[in-house]
Computed example of a mutant assay.
Amino acid sequence: MKITLCLVSLNLFIFITTHSLLSTASDVIYDSTGNKLLKGVPYYILPLLRGTGGGLTLSRASKDVCPLDVTQEPFDLSNGVPFIINPVLFDQNNVRAAYPISIEADVADPCRGSNILKVVTSEDVVKTVTAGGQFDTPESCFQLVENDMMPGLRSYQIQYCPSKCGANTGTGTDVICYNVGIISNSDGKRFVGLTDVMFPVVFESSFAKTVQSE
Rank of each mutant, 00 (worst) to 15 (best):
7 L>H: 09
7 L>Y: 08
9 S>A: 11
10 L>D: 09
10 L>T: 14
10 L>P: 09
13 F>E: 12
13 F>D: 11
15 F>T: 15
16 I>L: 13
24 T>G: 15
26 S>L: 15
26 S>A: 14
26 S>H: 12
29 I>C: 13
30 Y>D: 05
30 Y>E: 14
33 T>W: 04
37 L>P: 07
37 L>H: 05
38 L>D: 01
39 K>M: 06
39 K>Y: 02
41 V>Y: 11
41 V>M: 10
41 V>C: 07
48 L>S: 04
49 L>P: 02
49 L>G: 00
52 T>C: 01
53 G>H: 02
54 G>C: 07
54 G>T: 01
55 G>T: 07
56 L>W: 13
58 L>S: 08
61 A>T: 14
61 A>E: 11
62 S>E: 10
62 S>W: 15
66 C>T: 13
67 P>M: 03
67 P>A: 02
68 L>D: 06
68 L>C: 09
71 T>C: 13
72 Q>K: 13
74 P>I: 07
74 P>K: 10
74 P>H: 07
82 P>A: 04
82 P>R: 00
82 P>E: 06
83 F>N: 04
83 F>H: 02
85 I>V: 12
85 I>M: 03
86 N>K: 08
88 V>D: 00
89 L>Q: 03
91 D>A: 03
92 Q>H: 00
92 Q>E: 05
94 N>K: 00
94 N>Q: 05
95 V>K: 00
98 A>D: 08
101 I>M: 00
106 D>Y: 14
108 A>E: 13
108 A>Q: 13
109 D>L: 02
110 P>F: 04
110 P>T: 12
110 P>K: 03
113 G>Q: 10
115 N>E: 10
116 I>A: 02
117 L>G: 10
119 V>G: 05
119 V>C: 03
119 V>E: 04
